[in-house]
Simulated scan of single mutants.
Amino acid sequence: MLLTLATTHPPARDLGFLLHKHPDRVHSFTEPMGTAHVFYPEATDDRCTVALLLEVDPVGLVRGRKGAPGEGFALAQYVNDRPYAASSMLAMALKDVFRTAMTGRCNARPELAAAAIPLEIHVPAVASRAGSDLPRRLFEPLGWRVAVATGPLDPDVPAWGESPYLDVRLSGTLRLAEALNHLYVLLPVLDDAKHYRVGGDEVDKLLRAGADWLASHPESDLIARRYLSHRRELTRSALARLAEVDDTEPEQLDDALGGAVELDPPDRPLSLAEQRRGAVLAVLRSHAARRVGDLGCGEGLLARELLGERTIEHVLAADVSARALRIAGSRLGVERMSDAQRARLTLIQSSLTYRDERLTGLDAAVLMEVVEHVDP
């Protein structure tokens, strides 16, 4: 899959300083889904274009994956649009290779990093099964001019109809960091099918990348719902935190959660377990607890929701089972966490039947799945 970004801001070759990638070299990076290459098809003082090419290994994506019996032999796992159409994979690669540029830092050209410059972005294959109007709804409110082209799925077989893949071109005058954050959030929103399991840390990622624009975006509810894979609890958490910034009334928040039914499937009823976790979160919010212990955390379902709460500064997740803690660490994505996210979480093996000094200093302790096993 391919993405190009160009500027004519003189001297245009300074784009290399902003991206921290020299225009005269090819840069390659190993990603979980394949290999990302950064190179410059053109680099003059009048115009400079950088290209991000992501080579996806479809076999590597499936290798070692656990699923239902026989699933490993499903041809669709190997033959699909994942290697070609822009998706969450391209967004992840974008963040990995341009991480510093996304923060707006450039020691060599700090004044350029802070300036709005003319930018042109081209993504030749965008999966948008919601139609060609969605890219305009997402990017135009952010100051982009959007050109969308489509065509038949196969010119030799007109009966197959229009292709679900769009050729999208964006042009505008924005800060480079703003442009990269727009792409990081909105490419997965267009595709609406993330390649990894979405957990509570995705709320933080969304709000961090959309800090300057998401609250005021007219499609903020649709963006949150699609970015968070239609998980109602996570979407509600994201919209509630956005409402704090935008002073949205609770009634408007409820409307947002139920909106856009023409594009998104209706929310399923909450399970009893989800209702129980929601009730626990409500009590913790009412007491303004900042350091919370999830004692008997099991596989980390509640801990994931606790980490999604901005007001909770630290989560201590404890369980007597080493196996449960390993699963919890995997479910919470500990290996993929940033240092700041990792500092908010402590995973320990501990039993409630013994004194443990590591459990001191908490504002609240939750025994959601354990209290029935504790002697009166």
Rank of each mutant, 00 (worst) to 15 (best):
K205A: 10
L207S: 04
L207V: 08
L207F: 11
W213I: 05
L214Q: 02
H217W: 03
P218V: 02
S220Y: 08
S220I: 00
D221S: 15
L222D: 01
L222W: 04
I223V: 12
A224I: 05
R225W: 06
R225Y: 05
R226S: 13
R226G: 03
R226I: 06
Y227E: 03
L228F: 11
L228P: 04
S229D: 15
R231W: 01
R232G: 10
E233N: 08
E233K: 09
L234W: 07
L234S: 06
T235K: 01
T235R: 00
R236D: 12
A238W: 02
L239N: 07
L239E: 02
A240T: 15
R241V: 06
A243D: 10
E244S: 12
V245G: 02
E249I: 07
E249A: 15
P250I: 06
E251W: 10
Q252V: 14
Q252I: 11
Q252P: 01
Q252L: 14
L253H: 08
D254C: 05
A256W: 07
L257A: 02
L257Q: 08
L257T: 06
G258D: 14
G258N: 13
G259I: 04
A260D: 15
A260I: 03
A260S: 10
A260R: 09
E262A: 13
E262N: 13
L263P: 04
D264Y: 09
P265Y: 09
P265F: 11
P266Q: 14
P266W: 08
R268M: 14
R268C: 06
R268K: 14
L270Y: 01
L270P: 07
L270M: 14
A273W: 10
E274M: 13
R276D: 14
R277S: 06
R277A: 02
V283H: 11
L284V: 04
L284R: 02
R285V: 01
R285G: 05
R285S: 13
R291E: 08
R291I: 05
R291T: 10
G296D: 04
G296V: 01
G296K: 02
C297T: 00
C297S: 09
C297E: 00
G298K: 01
G298S: 06
E299K: 09
L301T: 06
L302V: 03
L302K: 01
E305F: 10
E305S: 14
E305A: 12
G308I: 05
E309R: 14
E309I: 01
I312S: 07
I312H: 03
E313W: 01
E313H: 13
E313L: 13
L316M: 09
L316K: 01
A317S: 10
A317N: 04
A318G: 10
S321W: 04
A322Y: 07
R323M: 04
A324C: 08
A324G: 02
R326T: 11
I327C: 11
I327G: 03
A328R: 02
S330P: 06
R331Q: 11
L332G: 00
L332E: 04
L332I: 05
V334N: 00
